[in-house]
């Protein structure tokens, strides 16, 4: 695989440089996103249409209004008038607004294993993302343990087991049906510690953010894991088709599980995932990964400039 890997640190203590490798992606995802402007002319005369275009990409009313206002200001200041110039202005506005200082996966902690928690509502692609992430980490020589803590949905454990097998990860599943997910997560971490594995990825059941008891279960999983090791990343998976409810999802999950990053999935469809803009702007949670297909390699690090270029085309 030709895109940047975080190679496992050769010796303990030597820091990896995730930033460098993240930028080394030569597997750009921009081409996987369909342009907002397919079949639409974009010039000074119809600058106001930009608001509708952004609305159609699920940016939301507030974001769309504010982006349009800034693009108009910038365009006026720079004298941008042609379609290309205006699009460049839009790209630069989006890129700078999507900037975030902390976009790399946190693989720099003192002690192994690093624990990743995958969370999100039902059907967004948590398990698939785990498969992809785990395969990629395995290629970087990290040894991965997957905790199958979705003990609720029918055959969820088998589904993640299939991905574990594909990616060569060690699977820790429940001993019996309907076992407490927190205890599965705990066992996964214990196993990783005992076997000196590098990374634990915990799969959790999809849950709607307004189900208070299920959300409490999630914070319990986190608490229980942290009895053994700190959690490095809590990745919230957001489906690109998600509308304005995505913001409510992010708020709720951030509250109970301290989300550290967003994974935007399914951008290979017609959906643009504009809601991540609002999530990052309003909650300060960076988008870290992006998924675009069912193949094991169909994911990349999120890059604002590339995302903006993909959207604007």
């Amino acid at each position: 695989m030709a895109f940047g890997l975080f190679k496992k640190k050769p010796t303990d203590g030597a820091a990896v440089d995730p930033g460098a490798s993240a930028q080394a992606t030569d597997r750009g995802f921009a081409s996987r996103i369909r342009s907002l402007f397919t079949g639409i002319r974009f010039d000074v005369a119809n600058l106001d249409d930009l608001e509708d275009i952004l609305l159609l990409a699920d940016f939301g009313v507030d974001a769309a209004e504010s982006i349009v206002a800034e693009v108009k200001r910038e365009a006026a200041a720079q004298g941008a008038t042609t379609e290309r110039e205006l699009k460049d202005t839009l790209v630069s506005v989006l890129t700078s607004r999507l900037g975030h200082a902390n976009r790399e996966l946190n693989l720099t902690g003192e002690a192994l294993p690093y624990v990743f928690l995958m969370v999100g509502v039902n059907g967004v692609g948590k398990t698939t993302t785990i498969g992809k992430l785990s395969a990629w980490l395995a290629e970087g020589d990290w040894s991965v343990v997957i905790g199958a803590a979705d003990t609720f949905r029918a055959a969820a454990v088998e589904q993640v087991a299939t991905w574990a097998k594909r990616s060569g990860a060690r699977l820790v599943g429940p001993d019996r049906d309907g076992q407490d997910p927190a205890s599965v997560a705990y066992q996964a971490v214990e196993t990783a510690v005992a076997e000196k594995a590098d990374i634990v990825i915990v799969d959790t059941a999809g849950r709607l953010q307004n189900k208070q008891d299920l959300m409490l279960e999630l914070s319990k999983i986190r608490r229980v894991v942290e009895k053994t090791v700190p959690v490095s990343e809590v990745l919230l998976v957001i489906d690109a088709t998600t509308g304005q409810n995505g913001l409510a999802q992010a708020k709720a999950f951030a509250e109970v599980a301290q989300v550290t990053g967003v994974v935007l999935t399914k951008v290979d469809g017609t959906a643009k995932g504009g809601i991540v803009y609002a999530i990052q702007r309003e909650l300060g949670i960076p988008v870290k990964l992006i998924g675009y297909g069912e193949g094991v390699n169909d994911f990349a690090f999120f890059d604002p400039a590339e995302f903006a270029r993909g959207l604007v085309g």
């Binding site: 509502v121 059907g123 690109a240 088709t241 509308g243 469809g269 017609t270």
Partner: peptide, 28 residues
């Protein structure tokens, strides 16, 4: 979100649907 229209049209044109089922309505 907004993509519902594209998706619905694509399935209507692609397979021809006779009805719709709305899932996860218990969310907010």
């Amino acid at each position: 979100g907004q993509d519902a229209v594209n998706v619905a049209k694509a399935f209507e044109d692609g397979v021809g649907i006779t009805g719709v089922v709305l899932t996860k309505l218990d969310g907010d």
